[in-house]
Design a protein around this nucleic acid. Sequence first.
DNA 1: TCAAAAGTGTTCTTATTACACCCATGG
DNA 2: CCATGGGTGTAATAAGAACACTTTTGA
Lengths: 229, 229
Amino acid sequence: MPSLDQFFKAAITVDNVIFGFDDDDLKVLLIQRGEEPYINKWALPGYFVTEDEDLDTAAERVLAELTGLTNVYLEQVKAFGAAKRHPLGRVITIAYYSLIKINAFEVKPASIAEKVMWHSISKLDELAFDHNEILEACFARLKRRVRGRPVGFELLPRKFTLTQLQHLYEAILETELDKRNFRKKIISMNLLIDLNEMQEGVAHRPAKLYKFDREKYEEFVAKGFSFEI
Amino acid sequence: MPSLDQFFKAAITVDNVIFGFDDDDLKVLLIQRGEEPYINKWALPGYFVTEDEDLDTAAERVLAELTGLTNVYLEQVKAFGAAKRHPLGRVITIAYYSLIKINAFEVKPASIAEKVMWHSISKLDELAFDHNEILEACFARLKRRVRGRPVGFELLPRKFTLTQLQHLYEAILETELDKRNFRKKIISMNLLIDLNEMQEGVAHRPAKLYKFDREKYEEFVAKGFSFEI
DNA sequence: TCAAAAGTGTTCTTATTACACCCATGG
DNA sequence: CCATGGGTGTAATAAGAACACTTTTGA
């Protein structure tokens, strides 16, 4: 059998654009680099893929090392492999994004980074490497995905109000939505369970709480339903 | 400066799903493997990425070696990197698809393959490696892309009839479209130039020939227009 | 004169948009 | 009693779907 040794080999990393939402703003979790190149610059959390690891597994591992979270929504976006993208040699990176509930964990130093912080997507500096470009590609993918799949709920607490849901869509789509039309559309899909609970401790009329009905969604999909916002 | 040598390195390939359209059928250009593994199986044309090559450049090179074509529509879809996807070792592949005018070149043996052949997308055998999965992902991407960008024209001759265009959409979307509604929609976009020429030598009423007006499309896009079918 | 595909409008239904006021709560 | 966001319906418009017959050509 022939061998692969004659061919050029490159280091492979996964980079993960971790999105969170805090009722105002869509945010990304970035780490501050502690070494060259790009020392002190903010960067996407990422790490090298190991020899026996699937790409998806590597992306899950990076996420788990930083946040402790497993079983979160994770989607591959694309590979970035410009010959000169890494100053120390040839590194091809596979970009993923994940959607997490922003309060599901406490931001603290992790094995892969001393400094970890949520950054508003609307106020980003220049990041290390080609990470601005990667982030843009992932954000564009999220924008598209959120309109055709009910992935937005991954970013909200289990119990949420319709206004929170609307603000989430507005933050992702970077547009304003009409309150009545938005509610009409969401409610008409029959995918929300009214929990018969109310917001508490707010200085205004409390809102109803809902949760997303995943079983019903899967049932509807099996019958040909297609989520669309 | 630290070094990358401590990290695992993998061979990188690009695989290219080359689509063509012949008035009936959407087709893919496959090569028959001349060596192990998967000897004699049909496979996607692909090859190893070299040390100083961008991924996109490698995909262009593979396409050019097989077809002689350059400057064609080429889009990266995603990376495939399951640990066990290649029997001889770790090979991560970046999948692309390209859209070509099927008569733009003659199918013949090339440096990377003895046997090269167009295969109907609707009648595909089992391919080498994970190439069925790659092909599916690229086809799904094309289906989505063709509805929101005027890329379908890449698969048609420069001068085409509305019926050819409709059949192309039907082949890609795997559905039937209403002739009158389709024409109404296409014509109303004002993106086709009526060439004032007719089909010749057909045993029925000859159809008008059109070409796609790329300048107008770009002008419209600059004004906020969004292609949609 | 026949076969085959080209070409052409109208009606109905559904989805989208625009828009303003009263309600419940905490401070 | 005030400020704040919660909650609700209708009318107008636009987009999409359904549908059948006449025309032109070559054989």
